[in-house]
């Protein structure tokens, strides 16, 4: 984490220099005919190239929606694989226009690194996975366990805090990457593996015997993974932010990629009409045309469809909606009104 902060500070210090070039990202993107989107170099369900080299995943779908809204082509995205170290500098230096790379929204990143977090596309949190035959049903029973933990991450600090707060002891087994962690955990080098719950689910899905491993119910930290743009370009931030909100609102209003063509003819619901551009001038206020939201939603479907296609119950990763359900369903997804 410290390295990230240091590099980020360099990025922030230099943002003044580079900032001049990127004051009008929207126009640049339109001129270039392509959105440059920073993604991770490979995270199951969130971003990965398929056998044909086409990027797929939950984060990737967010970028495609932006490209569809702005450029009328969900494939007009140049995906730039970024690592934990390079992601913020890539954004600050203008190498990417938008960062959709499972990045946790924190105070220092927002304020100190001059990033603009426009929308939380996934509410994650740190959890624990154990072998089922240990008979552990709750994280509070983990006293004395050996824990595989990625070094230099916030998860390491969260783990220490959680065990101390509950008066428990643990023995850390430091590991470098998720791949190493899977091997160590399967080899029995540690009883518990801890990382973000989405990561645990993806890891468990890759095991030969997923039914013999349990993800414990406790979630010990807040990891709001957000879509990020540069500070200082509110117009572009607005486009990305409201494209994301359009996906969320579409799910709430029942607009799917299947019925959107029909609904775009005009409905009795004025908010749907405003979102889909048959009423009002919301598109032109963003600097786009009235059909922007129709294209964004048609690209990969609404938020719920994107979730189901990439990380939902029907996929090997099999994440439940949980906190990522609509506010009407007891989750935290809440798009401001389109008015």
């Amino acid at each position: 984490m410290n390295k990230t902060v240091l590099l980020g500070s360099i990025a922030a210090a230099s943002a003044l220099v580079a900032g001049a070039a990127s004051a009008n990202t929207l126009q640049e993107v339109i001129d270039r005919g392509e959105v440059r989107c920073g993604v991770s170099t490979g995270l199951a369900g969130f971003s990965a190239p398929d056998a044909n080299g086409v990027w797929q995943g939950f984060d990737v779908a967010m970028c495609r929606a932006v490209a569809a809204a702005v450029l009328d082509d969900p494939m007009a995205v140049e995906f730039v694989p970024t690592t934990g170290q390079t992601r913020f500098t890539a954004l600050a230096s203008g190498e990417v226009d938008v960062l959709a790379r499972n990045t946790t929204w924190t105070f220092t990143r927002d304020v100190d690194l001059n990033l603009r977090f426009v929308g939380i596309n996934y509410y994650d949190g740190q959890g624990f996975m154990v072998r089922g035959d240990l008979g552990v049903g709750s994280a509070t029973e983990l006293d004395g366990a050996t824990v595989c933990i990625q070094t230099g991450t916030t998860t390491e600090l969260n783990l220490a805090d959680y065990f101390r707060a509950n008066g428990m002891e643990y023995e850390p087994v430091p590991i470098e990457t998720n791949a190493e962690a899977q091997q160590q955990y399967l080899a029995g080098a540690c009883d518990v593996y801890t990382t973000d719950v989405s990561g645990l689910a993806a890891t468990r899905a890759s095991f030969a015997d997923p039914e013999n491993h349990v993800i414990l119910p406790e979630v010990i930290s807040k990891e709001p993974l957000a879509i990020t743009v540069r500070d200082g370009d509110d117009r572009w931030a607005g486009v990305v932010q409201w494209t994301f909100f359009a996906l969320v609102a579409a799910e709430e209003m029942g607009i799917t990629s299947a019925n959107i063509a029909e609904l775009a003819q005009g409905t009795d619901n004025p908010e749907i009409n405003r979102l889909l551009g048959t009423e009002g001038e919301l598109g032109s206020m963003l600097g786009l045309d009235p059909e922007w939201a129709i294209r964004a939603i048609s690209a990969g479907g609404n938020y719920g469809e994107i979730f189901a296609a990439n990380i939902g119950d029907g996929t090997p990763i099999g994440l439940a909606r949980g906190l990522n359900a609509q506010w009407t369903q007891g989750g935290l997804l809440y798009a401001p009104p389109f008015r």
């Binding site: 490979g42 199951a44 190239p49 398929d50």
Partner: peptide, 8 residues
């Protein structure tokens, strides 16, 4: 190899 592993 990392990216390939990220494919489900």
């Amino acid at each position: 190899s990392n990216a390939i592993r990220a494919d489900t």
